[in-house]
């Protein structure tokens, strides 16, 4: 029998704890494929954050450190400064990176830390049960915005990719989506690019991935994928915002 599909070598056999229809699994797989294809499993060190992906270290067969909430880019800085030849990536959600850890993310970019951030934007706090995230859309209902997010009280969604692209220290900044196959393919290409740029020592790289949270959005998996396209992408346009070759794209 011919094998046409397999789990990436750099991933473990552990069954994931993610909810049905959640796109974390896809994002994990894309990172795993990238590590395999670049042949860097032996020198990759991941940093898990706090949120749904807190257990990311159980799913990757590479060295890992578990960071406190929001501090993954600082932890990654410490690792990378000690082992500049290693490949260091963080895997962070929107509460972790765009709320409590905003300073760490921005300053790692400002310093041009030669690390890669995989940033999962699903517009909500997942693990704690569906509270408003800084990325929550206007009008979106969460447990802490029961009437929907109102600009007057809670401001408007934060666009991390666009913000980070303005920093000279950031080498590669992109946002892609995981809601269908063509977009997943583009996301994969961006993730691989970001790791390649790190290998080349280009500096700070980040890929923001629009993701689903059917459980806390109160939708079916299919409705969730649909909502990413119909609602999220209006607020969060896809594409590369900065590349080492072309700089910031305005």
């Amino acid at each position: 029998m011919k094998q046409i599909f397999a789990k990436p070598q750099s991933m473990t056999d552990k069954v994931s704890h993610y909810c049905p229809g959640c796109t974390h699994g896809i994002a994990h797989r894309l990172v795993g494929e990238t590590i395999d294809e670049l042949g860097i499993a032996d020198r990759t060190i991941g940093v898990a954050s706090v949120g749904c992906s807190v257990l990311a270290y159980e799913y990757f067969d590479v060295d890992f450190q578990q960071a406190s909430h929001g501090r993954a880019p600082a932890v990654a800085t410490g690792i990378k400064r000690v082992h500049p030849e290693s490949i260091v990536f963080t895997y962070q959600g929107d509460g972790d990176l765009a709320s409590i850890g905003t300073a760490e993310a921005i300053h790692a970019a400002m310093r041009g830390e030669n690390i890669t951030i995989i940033f999962i934007n699903n517009a909500i706090y997942g693990m704690t049960g569906g509270q408003m995230a800084p990325t929550t859309l206007l009008g979106q209902q969460t447990t802490t915005t029961p009437e929907g997010r109102r600009f007057e009280e809670m401001g408007a969604p934060i666009r991390m990719a666009e913000m980070l692209a303005t920093l000279d220290g950031a080498a590669y900044v992109a946002r892609f989506s995981l809601h269908d196959i063509p977009n997943i393919t583009k996301a994969k290409r961006a993730i691989k690019k970001s790791f390649q740029y790190q290998l080349e020592g280009k500096g700070f790289t980040i890929v923001e991935l629009l993701s689903t949270c059917p459980t806390n959005w109160g939708m079916s998996p299919n409705e969730s994928l649909e909502w990413v396209q119909t609602d999220m992408m209006k607020v969060y346009p896809l594409g590369e915002f900065k590349t080492p070759e072309e700089g910031e794209k305005k």
Partner: peptide, 26 residues
């Protein structure tokens, strides 16, 4: 060696965490 002025004390201690976890005296 390496000196980094962090963005905050919080970031600094977490850089220490990363570097120590990577095996360094920090």
């Amino acid at each position: 060696g390496v000196f980094v002025q962090a963005e905050s004390e919080t970031a600094a201690i977490n850089m220490v965490y990363g570097a120590s976890g990577a095996g360094a005296r920090v």
